[in-house]
């Protein structure tokens, strides 16, 4: 009996050890599996959250769907691997996820120390503070002595420590594991302040029953370039993720939309559009993808502007302005290298 248990355990452990062995060749793995595993957050309205039918929706999810459309030709073939701030890199590095689309800040230590590959920026953000209006706080410089709710394992934790240290103020850090729990603690009054990226604050505020009673302070205390990441050691897969993001931004610049992409592919005489949409050249094959990879992306989720407005733009409950995320031609920072 004892022996039998031992043998069973050994078999299971063996299977696990073997399963994790292969890592390079992510593209082949994904194609074989037929499903793309995206590491996403455990739930931030507008960015990544399951709707009432359990379908994942949001800004980051659309980028995940775009990747699936490029690789597998079908935006529905995704699996959301949810991860907290703490577990996200482990889930990516252990091979549980193929790519990370989870409002993750690109930093030196993550790029170099955690050994990730970052592939550009899909949202330019910065850390802000939200307080209840009734406290009468006007500036982040007035927050000395306050209790502040933060999510653990994030860059915000470090920015906060630096901000208060350099301003010579004290505070009580209430460190919470997920956005949801942090929100509950803030609403219950455990903290005076909730801090995270400004986009996350707007998203969280949109879920309150009384959003008008909470203000986001004017100070932005950090740079938070959020973008996708993959593991080290698979250059082909890294290239694919990089150019999926670039294709989405370039599509907006070139005026390709979900509605007109079919017509554009048929009739456009612009060489860059023809190259990108697979009418000319063999960029798709060079990436190891179908020649209509970029066409599939735009058909599935649209260009950058469309993804933005649909999930987090002015007409959504989140209500974010394009701001820094406008195209470079409109005074923003979204700028893609050319498809040449």
């Amino acid at each position: 009996m004892k022996l039998k248990t031992t043998v069973t355990l050994c078999a299971v452990a063996f299977a696990l050890a073997i399963a994790n062995a292969a890592q390079a060749g992510t593209l082949e793995d994904v194609k074989k599996r037929g499903v793309l595993n995206c590491v996403v957050s455990t739930g931030i309205p507008g960015f990544a959250f399951p709707d009432k039918d359990g379908n994942w929706k949001g800004f980051d999810i659309d980028f995940c769907r775009a990747t699936a459309a490029a690789v597998l030709g079908d935006p529905k073939k995704i699996k959301a691997v949810t991860a907290t701030g703490k577990t996200r890199f482990t889930k990516l590095n252990s091979g549980e996820g193929d790519v990370l689309w989870r409002n993750t800040t690109l930093t030196f230590s993550r790029d170099v120390g955690v050994k990730l590959r970052f592939h550009g920026v899909n949202y330019y953000d910065g850390q802000g503070f939200m307080v209840p209006k009734k406290l009468g706080v006007k500036s982040a410089k007035d927050l000395g002595g306050a209790s502040i709710c933060i999510q653990t394992g994030t860059t915000t934790e470090l920015n906060l420590a630096d901000f208060f240290h350099s301003n010579g103020m004290k505070y009580e850090a209430v460190t919470i594991e997920t956005n949801d729990e942090a929100r509950q603690n803030y609403l219950a009054g455990r903290c005076d302040v909730y801090t995270t990226d400004a986009s996350g604050l707007a998203a969280t505020r949109s879920t309150f029953t009384d959003p008008e009673n909470h203000v986001i302070l004017p100070e932005i205390i950090s740079k938070e370039p959020l973008g996708p990441a993959t593991r080290h050691g698979d250059d082909q897969w890294s290239d694919i993720v990089t150019w999926v993001l670039n294709a989405i931004i370039t599509a907006e610049e070139l005026g390709i939309t979900q509605a007109n992409v079919r017509k554009m592919r048929r009739t456009s005489k612009n060489p860059e559009i023809m190259r990108m949409l697979g009418k000319e050249g063999n960029q798709g094959a060079e990436l190891g993808l179908d020649k209509k990879w970029a066409y599939n992306i735009i058909r599935a989720v649209g260009n950058y502007g469309e993804i933005f407005e649909r999930n987090i733009g002015k007409d959504t409950p989140i209500g974010l302005e394009r701001g820094l995320n406008a195209l470079w031609t409109n005074g923003g920072l979204q700028y893609s290298p050319p498809f040449r």
Binding site: G85, K86, T90, N93, S109, R110, K115, T152, G153, E177
Partner: peptide
């Protein structure tokens, strides 16, 4: 403790330090 944000050994070295350094 991590569930409610009490800073025990799992939350400090096994949590935040792990995340910030990538030394799982």
């Amino acid at each position: 403790a991590i569930a409610i944000g009490y800073m025990d050994v799992v939350a400090t070295i096994g949590g935040i330090s792990l995340m910030q350094t990538g030394k799982e």
